[in-house]
Design a binder for these strands. Sequence first.
DNA 1: TATGAATGAGGCTTCATTCAT
DNA 2: AATGAATGAAGCCTCATTCAT
Lengths: 191, 191, 191, 191
Amino acid sequence: MAPSRREQTKAQNRETILAAARQVFAQMGFATATVRDIIRATPLASGTFYNYFKSKEEVYQALRDEVALAVRPRLREARGNAHTAEEFFAGSFRVFFQFVAEGGDGTASSPERFRMDSPEVLEGFAELRQDVQAAMAKGLLPSSDPALLSAALTGVAFELADRVKAGAAVEETTGFAVALFLGGIAALPKI
Amino acid sequence: MAPSRREQTKAQNRETILAAARQVFAQMGFATATVRDIIRATPLASGTFYNYFKSKEEVYQALRDEVALAVRPRLREARGNAHTAEEFFAGSFRVFFQFVAEGGDGTASSPERFRMDSPEVLEGFAELRQDVQAAMAKGLLPSSDPALLSAALTGVAFELADRVKAGAAVEETTGFAVALFLGGIAALPKI
Amino acid sequence: MAPSRREQTKAQNRETILAAARQVFAQMGFATATVRDIIRATPLASGTFYNYFKSKEEVYQALRDEVALAVRPRLREARGNAHTAEEFFAGSFRVFFQFVAEGGDGTASSPERFRMDSPEVLEGFAELRQDVQAAMAKGLLPSSDPALLSAALTGVAFELADRVKAGAAVEETTGFAVALFLGGIAALPKI
Amino acid sequence: MAPSRREQTKAQNRETILAAARQVFAQMGFATATVRDIIRATPLASGTFYNYFKSKEEVYQALRDEVALAVRPRLREARGNAHTAEEFFAGSFRVFFQFVAEGGDGTASSPERFRMDSPEVLEGFAELRQDVQAAMAKGLLPSSDPALLSAALTGVAFELADRVKAGAAVEETTGFAVALFLGGIAALPKI
DNA sequence: TATGAATGAGGCTTCATTCAT
DNA sequence: AATGAATGAAGCCTCATTCAT
């Protein structure tokens, strides 16, 4: 049975609000943005917002869930399928850069990065670190401090992602990051 | 708590406010912190705040200026004095990690990173890129994309700085970062 | 909870809403209660409320009408049938206390008294005063200020009704009130 | 030292708000009245309200405190000084009726009675009952159910107070109430 | 008629900023 | 300058009521 007209409108409104929120958060940052800002970016009435979300936090959470759901599985898969160090790095960076190139993170022109302390993002970091450790255990990567290596990977990923958002080509940026880490890990202090 | 009002000269009030703001912003983040919070951490009255700063934004700006003024010259100097690639990287990372280890960035336990879009910080990035380009020109570093390399350096620096704030040793973290980049640049695509 | 929607006829919806309103007003008081609270205590939808009542005020009014309709005739009858002062007082108080003991006023555990300014309640007061005057004219009660006497009767009735709600026995409370007024009227200033 | 101009204004503002609240509560009742209503009855800005009171409840509390402080001690004194039943009743009713005649209860034309459940009012009831019990113990009043007698006194007092507000003379109303209770207590069931 | 989402006025409160002292 | 109360715009949210289905 097809969804009724009412249900469609309802689903559309949710999307309308999420889209507005994505835009507003990207432009003003989460802390600065207000629920009113989100509503104003919408043809809806103020009360309608609260039919869908209890608070600004809740929309934000929904957005983060969306992003996390969209990208984390793809990253895990790319790393899980890697048989060489090169595949390990290339898979991760390529997926991530493609994702932001498509605007999937919704932060197109944002002065803000993701909040690093949301459960979803933290979980993504933990996954990265686990995968790094597993790769070291398998001999895919030389043994070194996995916490520092994941941090470095993260830092480079986010920072180069900005270059990608600014127009850098995904493949070249990926190539750069992969080369940097392939060369780098050989030289890292062993443990 | 700031020293008693009695012993304050006018000039000291500015410092009192800045110190309070530094602490308050570090604890609550810029958007959440209120001018009242800052004043409350001060023996001064609310009106007095506006004798020294036009707005909350302005104190924040002043703090960022302070930080930038404190660290940027030291970074430039470290890089300027480098005669080898290792010195170039080591100098930069060590200075930066020491700075955050000392709490110089005022964000000790903050949920917030620096805003990356402030003129001072952007200027710091531009300096890094210039220095990278100069180092490439001098043959200190192999020629590759200086924008990407500076971005990668920045990303690693900020991300490892979090580890340092979390207690990682400055020297070891520096060693890790230096090894990573020394190894990495050799492998980077030439241009 | 009201009976399932299926078994409702249109005419029953009105009763369903009134019953829910009675309960909700008794629990939360008129001002605190919301239409949503009333609807929630019902299997109906919010819009349906407005098919039966124009506003929250209107349900309240309907409830007061109901109460007035339920108790006022019984009070009039009790007083009309009185052949002695004792019957006059006893009839009135007993009926009233029985009524509240049965929860007929719908304010079982309410922090609120009736609003004394509703037309129905005011009309009830007027009736009392007429009956008092008639009783004085008939020689059933000694002549004194009928306005003050009705006010005193009203005050005692409402206040002792609270004791009844709190568990006092109807007969004993009635006995107390009757004795008080029987003794009292003999001593009242004549007019 | 005389209060500074600033302090005077401050004290005046508090009074302004209290006066407005008194008026607004009297006109609309506590539950219906909003903080905005109070502010609108004032030349002050909305924020100013919150410099003086944390909430509507708090102003209301302040008003009740005022009333309770004004009348309860006078009532206790009147009853405490009584050497006869007549003095006991006369003192109480006269003080109370004078108080409302002067508008001291701030409810001039209110559709609302005092909230009977505020700590101050409840305490006032408890005092009445204690005094009634003490008077019975001293033989000033015949022994009967003190709870019912205090309730009856309360009911008559409030109800006749309405007549006083409506213009009835204090002395005559007092006379009426005193006669009613003097006559009544003689007839009450003994315990 | 019943439904329940949409509406938007309006409630409460905070806070950056001004201004009289 | 320093003070701190006053200001009022603006934030968040609730709720009576309407209206498309």
